[in-house]
Structures are given as C-alpha cells and as structure tokens.
Nucleic acid binder design. Sequence first.
DNA 1: ATGGCAATGTTTCATTGA
Length: 257
Amino acid sequence: MILAAWNVNSLNVRLPRLMAWLATNKPDIVCLQETKLEDHKFPVVDIAAAGYGAHFAGQKTYNGVAILARDGLAVTDVVMGIPGHADDQKRVIAATIAGIRVVDFYVPNGQSVDSDKYRYKLDWCAAAAAFLRDELSRHANVAVMGDFNVAPDDRDVHDPALWAGQVLCTAPERAAFREFLAAGLKDSFRLFPQPPGTFSWWDYRQLAFPKNHGMRIDHILLSDPLAARCAASRIDRNERKGEKPSDHAPVLVELMD
DNA sequence: ATGGCAATGTTTCATTGA
C-alpha cells in the first residue's frame, strides 16, 4: 500500500501533472495541500476518472486540503479542521481509510519570526499537537501527512548557516515538530538510511532546484504499528522537473500488508 | 545591489508562499 502527500501549489494548475502522477505511481491514498480551490470548483470528475474518490476542504487563493482514496477503499469519519479550534483557514482534513487514520496537514508558513503569522503558526501547532494526541488515543494506525513547513533538523536544510534562526528552522518550530512526534509518531523518512541533500521543496527562484538548494519540509509521520509496516519512505524529486512543476515534490511511504 | 519565481485576485500591481 502506498501513501503520498503533495503540496500541489494550486490544484487547478497542477491537475494534468496530478493525473499523470496518479497513473504512474498508483498510490492508494494521497493527501494534497494548497489546492487553492473552493469546494464547488474541486475537480471531482477528473479525480473520479482517475479512479479515486475525494474529500476536500478548500478556499480560494490560499490553503485548501484534500484526501484522495483509490476506488474500493471505504472512507469514513471525515473531519475538517481541528475540532474545538476555530480557524477560517482550510488546513486540516482527516479520514479513516483501510484501517488507517489519515490526517492531512498544511501547517502555516509563518512568514517571518517577527510577524503575526509566526505566532499564528506556533499557536496552530499547539492545537494540532493536542488534536494528534487525541487521535492517537483512539486509533492505533495513524498517518499524519503533508506540508509541515518545518525542516526538522540541519540535515534537512541545504545551507543550515544561511537558514539559522529563520522561519522553517527556528527552535520553537522544531520543538513544535518534536511535539508532534512525542504524541506517538515517527518521521518515516528517518526510519531508513537516506542520501544527504534529500529535500522536498526548492524555491522557484535562483535556480534553486538545479543547485539542489532545498529543504525537507513535507513529511509522513507514522504511529508505531504503521512504522513497523513501513518498507520505504522516499521523495519523488523527478516531479519537481519539467514544465509547470509545483515547488514541492511528493513524499511517499510504502506499507506492507 | 538583499532581488530573482509562480499563482491568485484585489489584475497590468500587491500579496503570499517558503
């Protein structure tokens, strides 16, 4: 079974790439972020033609998340947003699929350390950690997937000195990420030896991708029973190449039956 | 010299992303 997460940076623009990617990779469950589409504009018909059912919570211009499940997989207990945490921004959707509690996160960017958005990010992460603790108390098999907007440690940054103290790399953000793990999750990517310089996001500017000036900020976190079934965790950097790529590459895990 | 790109709606610029 293959689970994937991908910040598509506009599903409208990225739909042709998503269609091709689904056909090639045949994932069972896909969490999308930054769909940037109101729900009535979600491409339900195209996704269905590709063989997937979709659940989504979107808005125009910013944010927006969706969970795709391959036909034949029952989807139950869909939750949008963090229960009890009022937020107009569409950043969370969760569902139970094939015995797995799937949580799709689009963590706030934070913009800069001195901004209101940074405070919003840290508050959001605190609420998200409480949500995960609750989910983990009720489900054994939990996969939390998406764009976390945090590079967990310096290995996940192309130039740690350049990024030191900047948003995505600050100590409070990294502590917030560790708080997610402390709820009972493993960073699937670090369950395996990985080549240095493996990233999931590269700036569109400054030839960042050809120079591999990237960051690893998209993650798949697994509860212990799922981590025990995890055979591989990888990042599909090929998807960052070619015409009209998202600035993020898809991240994937393979789970044994 | 501290930018550069991409997507969007507020559209021929401003805002946001990371």
